[in-house]
């Protein structure tokens, strides 16, 4: 039953996310007139920023056993020492990290795995890079590849900082 609810949340979020991506690509490419690899880059960087904000917001408000973490260890400058840093392997999917609280798990499934996962895309990014090379403009393909990678990483770091400001801390 829990599994079914998670899959339902992921599906709903994924549908909305894909529609949101199409909307942004239509606006940036069809309406403003910029090339579509720029539109996909904007979508990917925006989604990376939001995943940082949402991850810290969800992790910051509740502990893994479901208790509030409003009174916590002193604030640290190192990210690894802060309360929301995952135990064990941090790169497992966020849904697996929130083991003890169903609300947290469903929210993560809807927002992170579903919506943001559906909004951002790697396949269109590589397809458009291939298309740029086929068109003979390989320098734009390089700019697209490394630019999206580095901007996405920077956006996650920015998102983490913004998310920490949103979470109440005492």
């Amino acid at each position: 039953m829990e599994k079914f609810m998670i899959v339902l949340c992921v599906g709903c979020g994924g549908g909305l996310g894909a529609a949101f991506r199409h909307l942004i690509v239509e606006l940036v490419h069809g309406f403003v007139g910029w090339p579509s690899f720029v539109a996909v880059m904007i979508v990917n960087v925006l989604g990376s920023f939001l995943i940082g904000v949402v991850f810290v917001s969800i992790e910051g408000t509740l502990q893994r056993n479901g208790k509030s973490r409003l009174c916590q260890v002193p604030f640290s400058r190192r990210f690894e020492d802060r309360t929301w840093w995952p135990d064990g392997d941090p790169t497992i999917p966020p849904v697996e990290q929130f083991q003890f609280d169903l609300h947290q798990k469903l929210l993560t499934a809807f927002v992170i795995t579903g919506f943001l996962g559906g909004t951002t895309t790697f396949s269109l990014f590589s397809l458009l890079s291939l298309n740029l090379i086929q068109a003979g403009t390989w320098w734009w393909a390089l700019v697209n590849g490394f630019g999206t990678l580095l901007l996405g990483l920077a956006a996650v770091i920015g998102g983490f900082h913004v998310g920490e400001k949103l979470v109440p801390r005492h």
Partner: peptide, 11 residues
Amino acid sequence: GAYTTFSSFSL
């Protein structure tokens, strides 16, 4: 597009 993801990759 929804099967692949960039946000979790960046995370």
